[in-house]
Design a protein around this nucleic acid. Sequence first.
DNA 1: CTGTCTGGATAAGAACTGGTGAACGGCCGG
DNA 2: CCGGCCGTTCACCAGTTCTTATCCAGACAG
Lengths: 111, 111
Amino acid sequence: MPTSLSQQRVLQIANLEIRPGELQVLIDDRRAGLTVREFELFFMLAQRLDSVVQRPQIYTAIWGGEMQRRDRSVDVLVRKVRHKLEIVAPEWKYIHTHFGIGYRFSPERTS
Amino acid sequence: MPTSLSQQRVLQIANLEIRPGELQVLIDDRRAGLTVREFELFFMLAQRLDSVVQRPQIYTAIWGGEMQRRDRSVDVLVRKVRHKLEIVAPEWKYIHTHFGIGYRFSPERTS
DNA sequence: CTGTCTGGATAAGAACTGGTGAACGGCCGG
DNA sequence: CCGGCCGTTCACCAGTTCTTATCCAGACAG
């Protein structure tokens, strides 16, 4: 699966640089320090800029298979990614929650 | 493959001089004393300064073929290179670990 | 306003990854 | 033969990450 990521191009969005081949996210040239899972989530959402991705879709994209009811894996992962991004860029929000549906990636300045 | 190395230019980075044609690494004009394999690894990473190189890519570049799961060859080789470099330049770190991903070359003074 | 459902936050144990030292075997020169 | 060098593999361990459970705040329906 890192192989498939390697094929992808570098994404430049807002103050982000996302390098699939290195599994790295750079924010204003600083490394976010995401783990492999975390990167997969973030990159997956980033590719669908501005669109709401449903939870089960996210789950399948990252873990494969069907998401069980009450499985909180996606939520916890989102939480971790948000946290790491906030450390590097406190004044930005990247992942937005859509209640009862899923998440949407779009960089927004908060201040 | 020593042939391909011979074609390459000498790299000057930080306190390093890397001579592909001689398979030699000089640190402040002192020889690191790397073996052929060790040099290949170090040079390969050095050419990708500041970028994270995934383990399987490293493996393929040096041994060819696919890296098996749980193959520790890369790790052990990195360990040996680090050790030899540390003897010559204790106050420098050259190879950084990115957990779950691979390694990144960028010279940093530690002290 | 109240009850119910969804998602945020946190924590504990399991599972995994990488650092490290050493053993093993091949190769070569003496 | 013998000893040293080199590359590979193994085993142990520390540190990191993932999974799962729980508690709680916010959202929504009636």
